[in-house]
Amino acid sequence: MGINTERDIEANLQIGPTTEGMVRLFIQAGDMEIPMDFDPDEAEEIAEEIRAAAQTIRRSR
């Protein structure tokens, strides 16, 4: 499975701060729950990667 492999899976994504000062990405798909915690600097890096990917898509259209 790679980033370009399509899957027919429905998932819910929640993003928010934790009481411990982390940024949590919480993914729920079926019976599976995946909490992913990042310090603020890591969260900023992830946000930049998401923005860069979106810009790449816009340029290719």
Rank of each mutant, 00 (worst) to 15 (best):
M22V: 09
A43E: 05
M22Y: 04
R61N: 10
I50F: 12
M36T: 09
M32E: 10
T19F: 03
M1R: 02
F38Y: 05
A29P: 00
I46R: 04
E45R: 10
D8H: 05
G30P: 05
N12V: 15
E42H: 04
P35D: 08
Q28G: 04
M1A: 08
D31L: 15
A53Q: 09
A29V: 02
I50W: 09
L13H: 07
L13G: 07
A52T: 04
S60G: 05
E49V: 09
D37S: 07
Q28F: 06
Q28E: 14
R58S: 15
V23D: 02
D8R: 10
E10G: 13
M32K: 07
V23A: 01
A11V: 12
E10F: 12
E48R: 14
I9N: 06
L13V: 13
P35T: 00
A29C: 01
E42F: 02
F38W: 00
L25H: 07
E48N: 14
F26Q: 08
E6Q: 14
I15M: 02
I50R: 06
I15D: 00
E10A: 12
D41P: 03
T56W: 11
G30F: 09
A52F: 06
E33Q: 09
M22Q: 11
R59S: 09
I3M: 02
I46F: 11
Q28V: 14
V23Q: 04
R51L: 15
D31N: 11
I3E: 13
P35V: 00
E33K: 01
Q55V: 03
R24T: 06
I27S: 01
G2Y: 02
D8E: 14
E48G: 14
P40I: 03
I57G: 01
E45A: 13
E10Y: 10
I3G: 08
E45S: 11
E44W: 10
L13P: 05
E49T: 09
L13Q: 04
R61T: 10
P35S: 04
R59K: 12
D37Q: 02
V23F: 02
N12W: 14
G21F: 02
I50G: 06
F26Y: 13
Q14S: 08
I57E: 02
M22H: 08
I3T: 01
E20G: 05
I9L: 13
E42Q: 13
I3F: 07
A52K: 04
R58E: 15
P17E: 13
N12G: 11
F26C: 06
P35C: 05
G30Y: 03
E45F: 08
S60Y: 00
